[in-house]
Structure formats: C-alpha cells, structure tokens
C-alpha cells in the first residue's frame, strides 16, 4: 500500500526527516510514536502533499504510483486521507458545503455519481449519529469555534465519508474524551479490511488498546530508530523514550 524508502526532507534548509524507511502492507495498521518535534507531523504532511517541505532524497510509492509526483488533491482522489493534528478553520465555509464538496470531488475522481444535497444529508446525518456529533455542526463554518475534540471528530467524519485506502491519523486521539476515543477507534476499525491501511501517529497507549496495531515504529530525530509489535508501545508507555535516545 505505502512504501517509503530513504526519505529525507528539510524546511528552510533545516533537515527534519533524515532517512525514513517504512513499508505498510495492505490491510495493516501501523503506529508511529516519538517525542515532540521528532518529525511525525512533517512526515504526515509531506505524504499528503503540503508544499512547505523540500524533499531532498528518497521515494514514496502509494498504491503503485509515485506519490511525491502527485498534487495534494490527486493524492486524496487516489485514496490517501490525512486527519490533521490541527484541523484548519474555514471561516465563511459552511461545514456541510465543505463536506459535500470534498466527498463529491472524491466520488467524481473515482467515477462515482455525485450526491445531491438530499442524498448527502441523509448519509452525513447517519455518519454523524455514529460519531455522536450534534447536527448543528453542519451549519457552522467548518472547524470555526469547534472545541478541540469536535475538530477531531469532524476529521473522523470526513474519513468515514470518504472511505480512503490509506488513513494517516496525526494525533487524532489528543484532546478526545474517553468515550470519543473509543468512537474514533471504532470508526477506524469499521474501515479495516484487506484494502485499507492506517498510519496512526499517537503519544498514548490508550488508543492502541482499541486499535491494535500490527507494527509500532519509533521516530526520533527524523529517523525510525526502532520497530516492533504492539508490546513496543506498552514498553514506551512504561519507560519513556530514554532507552532509545542513544540510538537516535
């Protein structure tokens, strides 16, 4: 599904990613953990196509394509979805209009019929119910004045509507209450299947209790310094990153 080889990148001349190798097969869920400033969000944004970063080396293949050659909207149409660590506020853009435009853009790219306002409303209401989101969040400007947890749920709602092949969740669990955490994990689990993979960036073991990952990678100083099974996350929770810092 996703294969990253020797990826290096910098911002304003400052190296941030220093050689990332990661192989995420179809059907698997991998977690990325690591201290603040390690480069986790940089990797996520870079995969989604944000232009602030200069790729200085390496390759990324996604579903058989050269991912780095695609525009952000083409990556989304190809099935990549990033749940932002900090969802962007869109004053003056109604959330319903935003969600419908995004969903229909993806549907058009997949050769599916666009949904009209009524069909969309039916679908989105159903998805919102399962995420325990109040319906007035459709009427407000997207993410504007949403609480931290509401913004994260709105990201998960988008994922549930678009049904991506690859979901990258960047600290989607931060700021969520315990019930929401479980709901979000259920949202991801509902998509699980042979054609769905997820890259879950998190600081907390709790999400991984609900969303048991196939692999856990530890990113420190722009490199993956260790990979292992779910037990690695439990060890980090208990001991911190100290025992790995030397390796970085």
């Amino acid at each position: 599904m996703l294969k990253i080889e020797g990826l290096t990148a910098e911002v304003e001349g400052k190296p941030i990613l220093r050689g990332i190798d990661l192989d995420l097969p179809p059907g698997e869920v991998h977690a990325i953990m690591g201290p603040n400033g390690a480069g986790k969000s940089t990797l996520a944004y870079l995969l989604a196509g944000r232009e602030d970063y200069a790729v200085t080396g390496g390759t990324v293949r996604f579903a058989g394509q050269d991912l780095l050659a695609l525009a952000p909207e083409a990556r989304a149409s190809a099935g990549l979805f990033l749940a932002f660590q900090h969802p962007v506020e869109l004053p003056g853009v109604g959330n319903a209009l935003f969600l419908r435009t995004a969903l229909n853009a993806i549907r058009r790219a997949r050769g599916e019929d666009e949904l009209d306002a009524m069909q969309f409303l039916k679908l989105v209401r159903e998805r919102m119910r399962s995420l325990a989101m109040p319906e007035d969040m459709l009427k407000r400007s997207a993410n504007v004045g949403f609480s931290g947890g509401e913004k994260k749920r709105n990201e998960v709602l988008q994922m549930a509507l678009m049904r991506p092949k690859l979901a990258i969740l960047d600290e989607t669990d931060s700021g969520l209450d315990i019930d929401a955490l479980r709901i979000v994990a259920e949202g991801v689990n509902a998509l699980r299947g042979p054609d769905f993979s997820a890259l879950v960036i998190t600081h907390h073991q709790r999400l991984l209790d609900y969303l048991v990952p196939d692999r856990v990678h530890v990113l420190i100083g722009g490199r993956i310094v260790q990979s292992g099974g779910p037990e690695l996350a439990r060890k980090l929770e208990a001991e911190g990153y100290g025992f790995l810092q030397a390796a970085a």
Partner: peptide
C-alpha cells in the same frame, strides 16, 4: 496557504478551493 492545502488535501481541485475561499471572504 493552510486553508488552501486543507481543501486540496480533501480532494478539492485547486481552482474550486480558491473559489470557495473567495466566496467565504465575501
């Protein structure tokens, strides 16, 4: 630029994303 990227990351083509943001400005 962040708003534009957010919309494009949701599959919305750049010209449409720009129109949406200009409408929002107005």
């Amino acid at each position: 630029a962040d708003q534009l990227f957010y919309l494009r990351a949701r599959g919305i083509p750049e010209p449409v994303a720009r129109t949406m943001l200009i409408d929002a400005f107005l």
